[in-house]
Structure formats: C-alpha cells, structure tokens
Design a protein around this nucleic acid. Structure first.
Lengths: 340, 340
DNA sequence: GTAATTACTGGAAACGTTTCCAGTAACGTT
DNA sequence: AACGTTACTGGAAACGTTTCCAGTAATTAC
C-alpha cells in the first residue's frame, strides 16, 4: 500500500508538501502540485483514515442509534438520513438498541471511543435528566421524539418530531366528529415515556374534551411497534373483551393493518362495522384495501431536518434547536360516519 | 481525555505493561493487572480506536452496501445482520448505492481507505467478471443474489440467496396447477442481471414447461421494488392493455400489494377475478386482506448466514462459499382455483 | 553452585498522517 | 543596498497505540 512517504520519495519532495497538496492547502506551486497529484493517481494512493483521525483527533462517522430498525416508518427516514450524511462527507454507523435504556449507555460508550462525531437517536424513549444527557459528549439529535416529559431546556438538546399528542388528539377528533364515541386505542405502551405515551395522552385528551369517559377496557397494549403477531393478538383480545366500540385509533399504520385483519377475522369489516384511523402515513397505507385514514408524518422533511441540524452542530455552524413538524390528515377508506 | 500514558504514569509502570493488561495478554502479574485496571476505571480510560487501528493496520467496521434500503424485505435482514455483527465485536457502516453500477465502485473506494475489514452487498445486480471482483480487497458477501450470470468460480466469492429462478418457477407453477394459463408478471426489470431477471426467467420457464406461450403484453415492468406509485401505474397499464389474464405473479410482496390495489380500482377483486402470488413472505403479507400467497424467504436464516460467512472470512476461519436457501410456499387467500 | 528456564517488566520503534516552525530564494520597496 | 514581504519547501514533533527486543529477578534443573 502506497503511503504519503512513498509519494514524497517518488516526487523528490517532503512529506509535508505532499500532505499540503492532498489537503488542498494554498502555498504550494502549481508545478509540484501537479507532480504530486499525478504520482498519487499513478501509485493508487489512498489516505489512511486512522492515521488522519489520530492526528486530527476526530473522525467522520456519525452513529445512528435505533430501536426497532425494522419499523417501516424508519426505513424511509434512514434512507434520507444516510443520503444527507454521505453527501456532507460523513459516514453513518448503525447501532441497534434493544431496550430504550440502552440508548444512553451505548451512546456514551461510543462517544468515548472517540470514533464518533455525532449521534442520531431514533425510536427510543426520552425522559432524560440534564445529567444523563451530559454523558453524551458529541452533538446529537433526537429523531421522532422530543423532550415532552423532562426538564431539559431548549439550549441543551436538539430534536425533530411531530407534535405526537396533538396528532393523536386530531386523529381521535376525526373519529369523534364522524359520530364515534366508543373508540378503542391500540398502543405500544401507556407509560414508557416514548411517543406511545404521548399519543395515548392525546387520545385521552380528545375524549375528555368531548366529555367521553375514558374506559380502560378499550385500551389494547401491544408492547411493540413491529411484531405483527403481537399486535394482532392484542386486538383480538380487545375484540373479545368488548364488542361495543365502533372505532379504533392505532398509534401506527402497521398496527392498523394488523388490527384490520383481526377485526376481519372476527367478522367485523372496516369501515362498515368499525372505523380505523392511525398515525404515520406510510406509502403502503395508500395501497391497502381499504386505504388507511392516517395522519401523515412528513418523513422526508424530518430526515432532512435531523441530518442538517446534526451537521450544523458538528461543524459548529448552528445551535441546538427543536423542530416540530405538522402532520396532515390523509383520508382513506377506513373511516365511516356513524349513523345515529 | 486519559490515554494509556496517563495510566502508566499513574500506576508507575511502563505503557507497554498497561497495553498488555488492556489487551489481556498473559505474562503480567496479578498485582499490576489489578492496579492498572483500577486506574483505568477511575480515570475513565477509553482506548483510542484510531491509534489502535493505525498500528494494527485494521479496523473493526464492516460496510453494508445496499441498494434500496427502504425495501421492507431488507429491514428484517438488516436487523439480523447488525445484531450478529455487533455481537462479534464489529461495527456496521451503512452505505447506500443508487444504481447497481455504484456498488463495485463504492466498494473499491471504501476498501482502499483501509477503514473496512469486510463488505456486505445487498440489493444490487451481480454479473461481475473476476477482474471487477478483484477490486474489492477485503472479504465480502453478496446477500440475496448470487453469481447466476457470471463466470466466477466458487472459490472466489461468497453469497447467500434463494434459488430465485426456481422460486419463481414454483410460484408460477402454483398458479398453473390451479388452472391459470393467462398469467401476467410484475417485475422490476427483465434484463438487469439482478434477481428480477432471474425471477423473470423462472416465470418463462414455468410457462414453457406447460406449453403456455409467452406473451410479452403480459409483462409489466416497474423499474423499482419500492416505489408503490410506479408499481401501481405499471399494473394499471397492464390491466388496461389486457383484460384476459386471470393471475399475476409479482416478484415481490410489496408489488403484489400495489397490484391488488390497482386491480381493485379497476373493478377486479382478488382472488375472485384475479389471483396473485408473490415472492418474499413479509410478515405484513399475512395481515393483508386477502392474505397474500407468497414464497417465503427465510430472512432470519439468510441474515445469519451472511454475517457468519463474512465473519469467518474476516477471521480467516473459513473459505468462500455459496449458500442457497429453500423457499416455502405460504398459502394465503390471494389465489383461487380457476373453474374451467 | 552454576546454568537454564520462567515470569515479568521497560524502552523504543513503528503505524501514516498533520502541522508547526524555520528556512531559502525571489521579488518588490524604500 | 538593505530590508521586508511573499511564495514555497523541508524537518521534525506529535497523535495514542501495539509489539518487538532486551533485560532483570526469581525459580527450577542438574
């Protein structure tokens, strides 16, 4: 493998000169510049990243710390993130965390190996104390969830999200405005300080505003966003437990898919016998039968925002900021007006 | 940041001794071992990866070069891959390639930066010459596609795949055995040397074996695996072009989803008016209405195989090998026997 | 009691860069 | 003619490790 020393020798110049050429420093004559460049290409010179990072005491890799990689909503997000990051000359590392508790631990560990210049958190919970957050020593951005529980001040963290509570409220409002009053909810969790809890709160809020009593028997917890079987079973139990509900609010599109199947298997058709509304706006949902009525998250814009905020932080061109995106109701065929 | 020198100084030993302790070399007294370990934890010592990699002239990162990250079949695969790789102490880097032509170029480039010890190729084409392949100077595995076109010998590359041609033939056979003869195909491409072409060949084979003439008007090319809109449009055009087909073979589950929607929008119900069979076996497909009849790829096993082969190559514990997995027909509700 | 082995340790080179500092030559300014 | 500036270049230190080599002390073998 050719290194910078070989180039120097080959050209009859000093290594420092070669380095200057390679790093596009000024103060190097056009003649030597060409000479070095030609040698570099002839000898197939490729810089050694480790050596460079060692002396520069940085790296070029950003870590994506994600819980539930196979969540289809993340797929598009990851696509956008990688593209943006690559375009800015950085590299994306993928790390999976199994529990939300891992996220800070893994983050802190990776940070310390000094091979990271930034972290993107995706799909975890978010109720950190300032002390916990300070374990992360590199710029980071929380994707798809924000500091809705904690006590962090806006100068100390960055996030990109929708207003989950509000979106959930809007989704449930949509059902209520169509005459539904017995509305079940299909959620991952009620109290894990993740978006699940926020959306659950939004559900409760909507009911309260319309003076509809909250009925815990209408809550189906799946404990997962991606395990279709578990979601199906949770819905089935709900159906067997209570036959009075006329609508389901699923906090994610994929949950709605499993729910619709469970309803169908129990002889209840959507939307005739039960309406369904969800949050996500997957492309897929437009191609289901019936098409899903869902609140669309602007996933592309969210990905761009995540990447840009992080890169600005890394290049110290920006300060921490929190971005909240609007969701848009996409009406499909899964909701029906209830006749009195 | 504490480094190995600080530890040495703090303990009153040489850096080499500290290094030995940290790398679990033998030949170091229990006493000093404890002393160093205690100091390391007290001073929050974290090794510098760049320095280590520099002197060892390796790294710990494996690159995943993927075309179409948002392909839902890949989601689960990536999940398994990351877990296996992380468990073996390596790190996974994500790189997206836009065109299949990128794949070798990007691979070669990354290889050369010497920050990579292995590459996983996912979702590209595969018709390389030995010369092209030799550009990649680190162990690599081709996931989900194999050397079905080229001239590589088995000692020079590794791959994990299903027998795409055979699977497609089986899928189409299933339709034929149910009485279908006018069978349309929904494919990404006919001649791009990727799995699309293989599956297309399998389709043609099945027809030939049953003396059903191949009709090009029954071929709908989408040019994509993941853009639902494009798939929908391609199917719509097919429907408007020919109303005689009684079944569709979609080379991927997601294509089948879009196709079923297109059929429905044109007043044709599945399976009553048209049967649909696909390849993939996404979990999702079991929860559609109707459930999809599809050939299941053992995605979990495939992921494990990819990771294991690569890791064995890296640790030079294994030789190149090609693994082909069996697919399994999962009968859903999207196929119906045709009455004569 | 000497030699050979073992157990442990320290010093220093090496990995491939970047960057600081000093230096030379040519040129323009006074 | 002396001086400052500019344009360019080389030497060497530094980044934080690992690993080779040599060396000492203690133990074992004869």
């Amino acid at each position: 493998m050719t290194n910078i020393k070989d180039l120097a020798q080959h050209c009859g110049v000093a290594v420092s000169t070669v380095s200057r050429v390679l790093n596009e420093h000024p103060d190097v004559s056009e003649e030597t510049r060409q000479k070095v460049l030609r040698a570099a290409s002839e000898l197939h010179y490729i810089p050694n990243t480790s050596a460079r990072n060692l002396v520069r005491t940085t790296s070029d890799t950003i870590a994506l710390l994600v819980k539930g990689v196979n969540n289809p909503f993340f797929a598009k997000l990851i696509k956008v993130l990688e593209r943006e990051i690559a375009q800015s000359g950085y590299t994306l590392e993928l790390h999976q965390m199994d529990t939300s508790e891992d996220e800070l631990r893994i983050g802190a560990q990776l940070t310390n190996e000094r091979k990271l210049i930034g972290i993107l958190f995706l799909g975890g919970r978010f109720n950190y104390s300032p002390e916990e957050l300070s374990l992360i020593k590199v710029p980071s951005v929380f994707c798809t969830y924000t500091n809705s529980f904690g006590t962090l001040n806006a100068e100390s963290y960055s996030s990109v999200a929708i207003d989950d509570k509000n979106a959930a409220r809007f989704a449930v409002d949509t059902l209520i405005s169509r005459g539904h009053r017995r509305i079940a909810i299909l959620t991952d969790n009620q109290d894990d300080h993740s978006i699940s809890e926020l959306r659950f709160q939004g559900y409760q809020d909507a009911l309260k505003r319309h003076n509809i009593p909250f009925d815990p028997t209408l809550v189906a917890c799946t404990g997962t966003f991606s395990d279709m079987g578990a979601i199906y079973r949770a819905t089935s139990e709900l159906i067997e437990r209570d036959r009075s509900f006329t609508a389901i609010f699923a906090i994610a599109d994929l949950m709605a898919v499993a729910a619709i199947k469970a309803l169908s298997d129990h002889g209840r058709r959507v939307p005739e016998d039960c309406s369904v509304v969800a949050i996500d706006g997957l492309e897929l949902s437009e191609y289901l039968l019936p098409t899903l009525t869902t609140l669309v998250q602007p996933v592309e814009d969210m990905g761009l925002a995540c990447a840009n905020i992080l890169i600005e932080l890394i290049e110290s061109r920006g300060k921490h900021r929190q971005v909240t995106f609007e969701t848009l109701l996409r009406e499909g065929g899964s909701v029906r007006r209830l006749n009195e």
